[in-house]
Design a protein around this nucleic acid. Structure first.
Length: 410
DNA sequence: ACATGCGGGGCTA
DNA sequence: TAGCCCCGCATGT
């Protein structure tokens, strides 16, 4: 009899919690425990104030991986690597797919790449993308600390993520691969060429439509089948870069027969289907989910911490796109790089409590499923930068499923 | 192109 | 001084 995936996951969490919840050490301690009997399974989604001790053999630990989008933060301590969470990229239109899922993209780690990413459009509705920064640690991003000591790698997380889970790194890479493959294929597709030409002519006589391609109503969304539900029970080595290639998420649609992505080498997703859709990550809304039980190593609840009672349950975009809460409660626009970089210069001046406009559970992202398309309001006029970007990237981000129809593999 | 790590440096409490 | 973060650079994939 096969062991249920949940059972395996529980065992891993048990293992992982042994060094976390009961840990008496702190990452800043001069001396860390060396008589560790059991090292933890690698935790892909560490959350709340947890600690783990990994084996120095663990590849994911070695690389300081996390499925959260974590960027390096200088703590002026070369012994302890500090990383802070970048949050999640959502659709500024708060769109949902037909089956009610939300878009949750992985913020690019590189500042420039993130800036560029935000000029792109929502893979579901072509709306503007918006970075929701993480404020799970007293209004600051959740921080992860890594410290190598002999045969052990100590990990400590501070703060509880107050935003949905983004795509994993591998999922984001896979999506980029698919997009690249699409653009690489595009000039060779006569039908698409014709369509582009028509589009160009149309653009000369009328205002440019932010959606340069009509959306396909049908057509299997191949790659979409490969992201999705967590298949718990992934061994630590495989959690991020293992045989599945795309993290512990086995596509919900994969069982339905899709095979758009595969991984020939561990950790290297392959865009096997060139015309697969350029999908982003979507998640079920809160009311459509079963909250996963918090790992025993987690002290925090499944829901995000401190919330204002008046905060909406629905993770909508509230005051104005790009205006998350300041660490102390006020809304503000994101900085030029989309990382709210200037908030620190002002947050001290504003009063209030640390909070977020989002009341979200720790949810596993899902990809736009086959046939899922936008059903949010038409996109409003966007800036020239975005328009320019769309001219170059529209195929990337807006029309992959259309492309699939225009350029069927068979 | 992008992720990752390092280190200088600014700002605030 | 500590704790934040931004930024640029170098390196690896």
């Amino acid at each position: 009899m096969l062991k249920g995936a949940d059972d395996v996951a529980m065992e891993q969490e048990d293992s992982a919690s042994q060094n976390g919840e009961m840990a008496s050490w702190d990452i800043n301690d001069i001396k860390l425990p060396q008589d560790v009997k059991h090292t933890d399974w690698f935790q892909e989604w560490p959350d709340s104030y947890v600690k783990h001790i990994y084996s120095s053999e663990d590849k994911n630990a070695q690389r300081h991986h996390s499925s959260w989008a974590m960027r390096n933060t200088n703590n002026h301590n070369s012994r302890i690597l500090k990383k802070s969470c970048l949050g999640v990229v959502v659709c500024g239109n708060d769109c949902s797919t037909l089956d009610g899922r939300k878009i949750y993209l992985r913020p690019a780690i590189c500042d420039k790449a993130r800036q560029k990413q935000q000029r792109r459009c929502c893979p579901n509705c072509s709306g503007p993308l918006q970075l929701i920064s993480c404020r799970g640690h007293g209004g600051y991003p959740v921080t992860n600390f890594w410290r190598h000591e002999g045969q052990l790698i100590f990990f400590q997380s501070k703060g509880a993520h107050d935003h949905p889970r983004p795509e994993t790194k591998l999922e984001a890479e896979a999506r980029r691969s698919i997009q690249k493959a699409q653009t690489a294929f595009s000039p060779t597709c006569p039908r698409l060429k014709r369509f582009r030409e028509t589009e160009r002519h149309a653009g000369e006589t009328q205002p440019r439509d932010p959606l340069p391609f009509p959306r396909a109503k049908t057509g299997p969304s191949v790659a979409a089948a490969h992201f999705g539900r967590p298949a718990s029970g992934i061994s630590p080595e495989r959690a991020l870069g293992g045989r599945l290639g795309i993290s512990p998420y086995v596509g919900a649609g994969a069982e339905a027969g899709g095979s758009g992505l595969r991984c020939d080498k561990p950790g290297e997703p392959v865009a096997a289907v060139a015309c697969g859709p350029s999908v982003g990550f979507v998640e079920l809304p809160l009311w459509d989910r079963v909250l996963p039980a918090a790992p025993r190593g987690c002290h925090g609840p499944a829901l995000a911490p401190a919330r204002l009672p008046s905060e909406p349950l629905c993770p909508g975009i509230h005051p104005a796109p790009g205006a998350p809460l300041t660490p102390k409660g006020g809304y503000e626009p994101l900085g030029p790089t989309g990382d709210a970089s200037h908030r620190e210069k002002r947050h001290a001046a504003s009063g209030g409590l640390p909070a977020s406009p989002y009341l979200l559970a720790q949810q596993e992202p899902l990809v736009v499923p086959p046939g899922a398309h936008h059903h949010c309001a038409p996109l409003k006029a966007q800036g020239r930068a975005l328009e320019d970007e769309q001219q170059g990237l529209n195929l990337d981000c807006c029309s992959s499923d259309m492309f699939l129809n225009l350029c069927p593999l068979r």
